[in-house]
């Protein structure tokens, strides 16, 4: 287990490094970083002094090294418009996004997993049909459209739920559904097919032949084996829910990273965009590491490899 953990940690670190490299290269491709600071009063000396200040006279690999070590110490640069450290700005907005992503995640699990189990156990029934319809809709309806329709129906027409901004629990419902529906559908389909497969397996036949009750067969024998695929998927969705939040946040005016990133694009505040990108990547990689650890815990075969 320890060896497995070490291997995965190293792999995650490499992935993170690769992403910073991509961000770094993208930033340099954008052109001379001094371009953003230039105004007509700037002299050639000032221009070169700025270059030295930003480390642009050093070789590229050294610049990259400085870039990475700054990120490692939590320094994501300074926003040229807000004149504040990007790290502070991103950290301010992060909780809102995480809360929204968590709400979407909980929705996808709480709805997707039981629906998948039910569909598999009652294969071919009305439940199965309803579950599969739910999954197909989640897969094919774009989240912004769901968001707008949800606001229209439940906020404007029925006036049941608030449409905009962060707030009490009721503020979470519509954004969570809009954000989490696709993931819930995917979760449901994965859970269903994994469950169907394990329910057909020889060890389930043997469990039934031993006299294990239907409930025992489903929850003790089939479910634990079937959980692996949905679990991996859950980790991946957690990452994509954070990225997906960008769209949903704009529709619901949700004060998170997504709204921040959109505003940064509009203002061409590259430092903020870069900071958001790095933070989101970090969460993406961290969640998939977490999933692998849980995975190894559930399936002993991985642990002992």
């Amino acid at each position: 287990m320890l060896r497995f953990l070490r291997k995965r940690l190293i792999a995650s670190a490499i992935a993170m490094l690769l992403v910073t490299l991509v961000v770094f290269v993208l930033a340099r491709i954008q052109g001379d970083p001094r371009a953003l600071y230039i105004d007509e009063n700037m002299s050639q000396e000032m221009y070169e002094a700025l270059g030295r200040e930003l480390g642009l006279d050093r070789p590229l690999y050294y610049q990259y090294w400085v870039f990475v070590s700054q990120i490692a110490t939590g320094d994501l640069g300074v926003s040229i418009h807000q004149h504040r450290p990007v790290a502070d700005i991103v950290l301010e907005r992060l909780p809102a996004t995480l809360k929204l992503a968590t709400a979407g995640f909980i929705f996808s699990i709480v709805i997707g997993v039981p629906l998948g189990i039910l569909s598999a156990v009652r294969r071919g029934s009305a439940w199965d049909f309803a579950g599969r319809t739910f999954a197909v809709l989640g897969h094919s309806l774009p989240s912004f459209w769901v968001a707008i329709m949800a606001i229209f129906i439940f906020s404007v027409q029925l006036r049941w739920l608030p449409a905009f901004g962060d707030g009490g629990l009721d503020h979470y419902i519509l954004p969570a559904v809009a954000l989490g529906w696709a993931a819930a559908g995917g979760q449901m389909r994965l859970m269903r097919s994994a469950m169907l497969e394990t329910l057909d397996s020889q060890y389930v036949v043997l469990a039934r032949a031993k006299g294990v009750s239907q409930r025992g067969v489903i929850f003790k024998h089939a479910l634990r084996n079937a959980l692996l695929a949905p679990l991996t998927f859950a980790g991946l969705t957690l990452g994509s829910l954070i990225t997906g939040a960008i769209i949903v946040e704009t529709v619901f005016a949700w004060p998170g990273l997504g709204l921040l990133a959109i505003n940064a694009v509009v203002a061409s505040d590259y430092a903020i965009l870069q900071g958001v990108m790095i933070v989101i990547t970090f969460f993406y990689i961290a969640t998939s590491l977490l999933v692998d650890v849980v995975y190894a815990w559930v399936d002993p075969r991985i642990r002992y490899e």
């Binding site: 020889q202 060890y203 036949v205 043997l206 032949a209 024998h221 634990r224 084996n225 399936d299 002993p300």
Partner: peptide
């Protein structure tokens, strides 16, 4: 059952 590889639950 026929196949002891398949007949035992791998996670128990």
């Amino acid at each position: 059952l026929q196949d002891p590889m398949q007949a035992l639950n791998p996670v128990l």
